[in-house]
Write a protein that binds this DNA or RNA. Sequence first.
RNA 1: GGACCCAUAGCUCAGCUGGAUAGAGUGUCGCCCUCCGAAGGCGAAGGUCGAAGGUUCGAAUCCUUCUGGGUCCGCCA
Length: 581
Amino acid sequence: MNLFADIRTLVTESLSALQIEGVLPEGLDFTNVTVEPPRDTAHGDMATNAAMVLAKPAKMKPRDIADALAAKLAQDPRITSADVAGPGFLNLRLAASVWQSVIAAVLEQDQAYGRSSLGQGKRVNVEYVSANPTGPLHVGHTRGAVFGDALASLLAFSGYDVTREYYINDGGGQVDVLARSAYLRYLEAHGRDVEFPEGTYPADYLKPVGEALKAKYGDQFVDQSEALWIDEFRLFSINAMMGMIREDLALLGIEMDVFYSEKSLYGTGKIEAALSTLEAKGLIYQGVLEPPKGKMPDDWEAREQTLFKSTDHGDDVDRAVKKSDGSWTYFAPDIAYHYDKVERGFDELIDIFGADHGGYVKRMKAAVSALSDGKVPLDVKLCQLVKLFKDGSEFKMSKRAGTFVTLRDVVEAVGPDVTRFMLLTRKNDQGFDFDLDKALDQSKDNPVFYVQYANARICSTMRKAVEEAMLSDEAAFSKADLGLIQHDAQLAVAKKLAEWPRQVEIAARTNEPHRIAFFLYDLASELHGLYHLGKSEKGLRFLNDSSQSATHANLALAKTVSIVISAGLGILGVKPAQEMR
RNA sequence: GGACCCAUAGCUCAGCUGGAUAGAGUGUCGCCCUCCGAAGGCGAAGGUCGAAGGUUCGAAUCCUUCUGGGUCCGCCA
């Protein structure tokens, strides 16, 4: 049930009826007609812009359309009043029975309330994290991980067939660096003094890898040339790093469906196949790129190389797919990887990148557009940087100094639920200041506890009701007389609940899971408000000594809030709290 | 030189892809527990939505230019 969609249908049907009656001309396009909650609830429950949108194409005055529409809508039993206001808004008020039916619908649909068929079962691939397998995940990765995971859940909730995917960059030079760094730790495990030259990874996390390599290979590779050990050390180290990364993700409750290896694209003809597809479209040519503007590299010189004509698909300059020595650039396997996604039959692709890959978006979109003939949309969501604050000042991270904060550090400090919720209370393209002290603060400036508390309160009230024998079991809700829910403050909660399917849909359409977090905050606020009103107005207390039927109706309402909070937190990957500790 | 992102209350941020008098939290200042959990509620104050133009019935939202801040711009990944 989506009440806003229902009323919008009513509006468009009424408009069609007006066309048949000759009040409105034929051939009007209703797609821009919206039914939304008005900004100010004093205006009513819902507002439609139909009259203003249609005024011009209908060649009529907005108010004339609005008056006719109002009269038509008022005939529907759900509409108690339809008033024209302002430049031509039509403000609607809905009968209490409508809101009561929302409560009934939530009780009946339970966790399925708010699900939709928006995605129509379309297959969407969400690629996120995709951190290089050269070390543990750090704070920067955490945001993309949480965002991608919540987005995937949101889309699944909205009727998409979702695949969560991680692209392992195990094909480039950085994994050789990893192998060499692991080799140094291997030597160290054999009692050698080692130094980490520029361009190797000096951090401690490779120590156990060095020990493990010693355990596996003994001293057979000590003082041996790189060619003898590099392949085995690389493979071993990558596996070790990916094991660590999976553990990190598991800390946040993230489980991928697919780990896709970049290396698997090499030597299997996949890169060649992707590029020949582009070549067949006339998008591959030999050429010389302009030198980069701004900072000029010292050793830059013009060289002819193989280029992809990405400018045909919206990019600013064409991009190299082969180096001048004939080997692939990093872009080539990425093209092949996305080609593979298209070939696997996904209807939509979503990539979650860090802000530092912003310059990569256009060429990737160009590649997918070219490879799929524009049929498979690629949406790239950039997660802006996370700045970490501790003890009131910014915590600077430096790879060279080895001072970086890992995902594990953060999760162990504040817990997975707080980490996830906090990171999701910000739009992805907004920078994020993560204050660890505030995240730990359970009383102030911490929305996750506010939402958790609302749910805990409801659970607590339920327990109390059972203790005091006012409620036998929750099955009583289905028989509750919801007609008893009439007070404005109670109906306000129902109205907020009615918005849930709509908010989910907007969030899914825009790929913006943060909207879920903000909605839950609003819903929790309604609940807290109603709860406190019970202090001054006895009749609004959830537990009503004098009327069991009122108690049951009230608890049914509370239950629906709990249902939606659970569903919403579920999308965000946060556990709903039964009680606060 | 160029690309992308951001700029909204003292601070941190929303703003339903163009709607009405721009909203929360936090901070400041007042109230509210004999009570189903005060980890809460109610109220007040606080804004030329970075600036200037443009598009139209209507702009924080779309377009142009500019100013600040961030990310980036090699055949690295």
